[in-house]
Design a protein around this nucleic acid. Sequence first.
DNA 1: CGGCTATTTAGAATTATTCTAAGTATTGAC
DNA 2: GTCAATACTTAGAATAATTCTAAATAGCCG
Lengths: 145, 145
Amino acid sequence: MSAGDSHTASPDLNERLEVSGFRFTPQRQRVYDVLHEKRDHPTAEEVFIRAKHGMPDISMATVYNCLDALVKSGLARQVTLERGATRFCPNMAEHAHFHCDTCGRVFDVALAPDSTLLPLPKGFKINRCDIAAHGICADCARKAK
Amino acid sequence: MSAGDSHTASPDLNERLEVSGFRFTPQRQRVYDVLHEKRDHPTAEEVFIRAKHGMPDISMATVYNCLDALVKSGLARQVTLERGATRFCPNMAEHAHFHCDTCGRVFDVALAPDSTLLPLPKGFKINRCDIAAHGICADCARKAK
DNA sequence: CGGCTATTTAGAATTATTCTAAGTATTGAC
DNA sequence: GTCAATACTTAGAATAATTCTAAATAGCCG
């Protein structure tokens, strides 16, 4: 079996799931792989469609379950940018999202190192912080001219 | 008629709607008032329930239509913090939102004056930027002890 | 192996939102 | 002021996104 074989349980995935009280399953591996194959912030339905290639019997409910397990294990983030379907992102590094209002694509944007300093009221404790910019991407801006 | 009578068309509301190509209607006034009476980021359904007090025949479809008109006129913001219903916020000043994962309440948080500097790739143009923090609010943190 | 529990599955149910068609109100032209 | 055009409201149907349910399956630990 080759080193890069994506059907092998990633040691990381396996461990991270177990630490969070989840079991490793082929379906979770598949969903995890789908998120990493094309990091374009797919919706649950898009993940479902992609996951079926190579695992035709996987069901929508399982995709939701797997995405949930990945999110709770700190292996993916849920991204809610607009009304409508939630998107999923396997990039766990601190970053913001840019949503193009014209084409609908979502881009990862690095953050300036000091940028997340919210002056919170006393007693509030922050777990995570989502930054979502909306506008027009370079491609669409060019075409619009 | 008293100066503070909220049933009078606010000159601002009236004008802002017209500038954006919308008509002024009593329903839009009512929805606008509801958002300002209690600035707690209600969902469309909560707005609907509140709007019915004093306007019992207003319909859900109209609430959606009014909220849409207000958002498009720059008089309210749509806030999508999590899976589930969209919330609405009449605070048009630049600010972030804090969502308490325990009680579900949403708080406005002022921003540090310099905080919104995303290093965007070339050609990208930003319209607006939503910052959403998630964690635990002071009340819930105290109770949890 | 055998029992326990997590997971998967298909499909039903629920929730949030949008659409539709008919009626009503408002506006602008005359 | 009347008329036509258009915007708006309404109830209810339709759609989309997600969650729930119950039964079957699979992995884990003794």
